[in-house]
Nucleic acid binder design. Structure first.
Lengths: 376, 376
DNA sequence: TTGTATGCGTTATCAG
DNA sequence: CTGATAACGCATACAA
């Protein structure tokens, strides 16, 4: 036994040397030769539910280990037509929640045996260049946290490439989507602030080409109108820290006074607004002015800020995106679905709030589908 | 002309239908057939420096466009033995500078025609599982911002897989590395603080299994000893916000007093320390206590903090990593190189500092190689 | 259970 | 410049 094993090892070293000499990779043929079986037997040994006898399996695995053999994913994907890779397209915003998103999505797909091919966009316009790569690399599906045009969507359809949009809505298009109900979230924030007596609102919006920013702003405006409050002052922003200070000043200038509350399209802007109000303009927050944001990025929770904000259930959203995409990859004919989550209200300490009295209306989904999970 | 073109288009639609019927992909053979050329001609048309006649090229490209043909990267990588993919292995720390790293690295490699296969580690121990995937996917090289054991390094060598360590040092191992001179950075920080009169230091270290944390701490301690200052109080931390407050209290408890300055292994800890000092313990920073961090993450620059810290030149480091890896991928026999950058001192306002008088000693590299760029 | 033979879609080689 | 042909490394239908 020991003797035979030794000789196998000797053969292995010889074989490895030969392979290195030919300057090629270790293939299943090499393993087969060393183990004294056919190439297909080796292939089967590396396939989960294959039918191989116990001792043959052992022999193959030993040979494979001796040769440092690992199946070649490129060759496999060529024949199986699945690469087990998923592309993630993500805009390179200063958005502090993207790392969290990326970490969650990565974890979810790894758990499902998929690897992530990462595409970060400097500008939204890079998406065309990136898509060409996506097609080349034969990924099994795509998660897009970037703005896609209807033409892009059409190309996904044409190529039958499974797609899940993350926090990007595209009206009138049948495409898998995972989002928060940002409209409802905007409404909710106004409701809570109005209940505490705030009447004059200022809004620092994000880039309204983004559905997230648009919906948050629209939800807030809608609710303000419904409640018969004065029209809010809306100024644009870029989702970054600097926009917060600029927006605050623009609102004050436009209104000729400090409003009761400022709603910012993102935490970054809220934090910028807060810093400017407190340290630059000497405004008491929340005594004189309430400030609220969206996203609950890590710094919003720091003692210096303790921001009133709304948290997206990122882990659940990432899991949902993975589920949706995997389902679509398994059966191309599954119906598209929009999963809409609701955000969790974080009271924080930058807004004057009264304890929540009335329960809020249930979150509605755009498709009328049932809401998977109500986080509130 | 128009007539012939029309007929080509008709053929294209027919061909596409046939392909769809056979449920297969569009291949270079299909394009060749439609364009009336050989398959090799098609292949050449998609290769940058190929020799194809002008009109043939045009015909092929037209046919390709009509059929939505894109070369299959898996098949290409099978024959060329290059996948044009680079793996990035990154620990999923709350480290706020990782998104910046990822964005920069992504951009750098995309510019060089490489795609990123992303592997995020929940725990450092996941690295074994991840490496198996790395071998499978036939990536051309690996950027690792994670802790690798000498055994791991050995496996990279054995498989002749190009590797660049990012901000991880491995002593006594010949491996491409891009880092900041964290030792010098620690020394520098102490020098500046000592020059301003700080004598009693506290240090909140990071996880010292990480070379970054270890070197920052050691550099600081070394310099403190050299200057003949009292021994610093060193407490452990986890690189996160919470560790800052815990560390501060531990230092005060251990010392029985508030030290002159606290050096934190990361900005996150410095910010946590700062918040705790100011808002929890009522300590005046920098009047009573100076606080400094490392990394210059985005929040360190916010008005509420304006942290004294040191910035790693991330764009240059990412570019260096890409350069190093690409060089190694092109010629496997290039010598290993350690590129050591120096950090930029950010004065901020959380430490009492005197204007810099004496110039600092030049940064030294571990290998004695010239320093590529002195950022200071 | 096992081996044989074939094909996945491309690039490389070589003769014309 | 062009086309035929041979790899690349694997998975799978089929025969044994």
């Amino acid at each position: 036994m020991t003797k035979s094993k030794l000789s196998v090892e000797q053969c292995a070293t010889e074989l490895k040397a030969a392979i290195a000499g030919e300057n090629r990779r270790v293939t299943s043929y090499d393993v087969a030769q060393l183990a004294g079986v056919s190439q297909s037997a080796v292939s089967r040994c590396f396939k989960p539910g294959a039918s191989v006898s116990k001792d043959k399996h052992a022999a193959v695995m030993q040979a494979a280990a001796l040769l440092d053999y690992i199946p070649n994913a490129a060759a496999r994907s060529l024949i199986t037509r699945r690469s087990n890779m998923v592309a993630v397209i993500i805009t390179n915003q200063a958005n502090l929640y993207y790392p969290e998103l990326l970490a969650e999505v990565s974890q979810q797909f790894n758990a499902r045996g998929k690897r992530l091919l990462l595409f970060t966009l400097q500008r939204e316009s890079d998406v065309d260049r990136v898509l060409a790569d996506v097609w080349q690399y034969q990924v099994d599906g795509v998660i897009a946290a970037a703005r896609l045009s209807p033409e892009h969507i059409a190309e996904f359809d044409r190529r039958r490439m499974p797609l899940v949009l993350f926090n990007r809505m595209l009206r009138d298009h049948s495409v898998n989507t995972v989002t928060c109900d940002h409209l409802e979230t905007g409404r909710l924030l106004v409701s809570r602030l109005a209940a505490a007596g705030h009447r004059q609102f200022g809004i620092i919006a994000g880039d309204e080409e983004l559905s997230v920013a648009y919906e948050r702003r629209r939800g807030a405006c809608e609710r303000i109108a419904e409640l018969g409050l004065p029209a809010p002052v809306v100024v644009p922003g870029q989702y970054d820290y600097r926009s917060g200070a600029l927006g605050l000043k623009a609102i004050i200038a436009q209104l000729g006074a400090v409003p009761d509350a400022i709603i910012c399209g993102s935490d970054l802007m809220a934090i910028g607004c807060l810093d400017s109000a407190r340290h630059e303009l000497g405004i008491d927050v929340p005594g004189q002015l309430s400030v609220a944001g969206f996203d609950a990025v890590e710094p919003s929770n720091w003692v210096s800020y303790n921001l009133t904000t709304l948290r997206q259930p990122m882990p659940k959203m990432a899991a949902a995106a993975a589920d949706l995409l995997c389902a679509r990859m398994a059966h191309h004919d599954t119906e598209t679905e929009k999963r809409v989550f609701s955000a969790q209200f974080i009271e924080g300490a930058t807004a004057r709030l009264t304890p929540v009295g009335a329960r809020l209306a249930p979150v509605r989904t755009a498709t009328g589908l049932p809401l998977p999970v109500a986080i509130m």
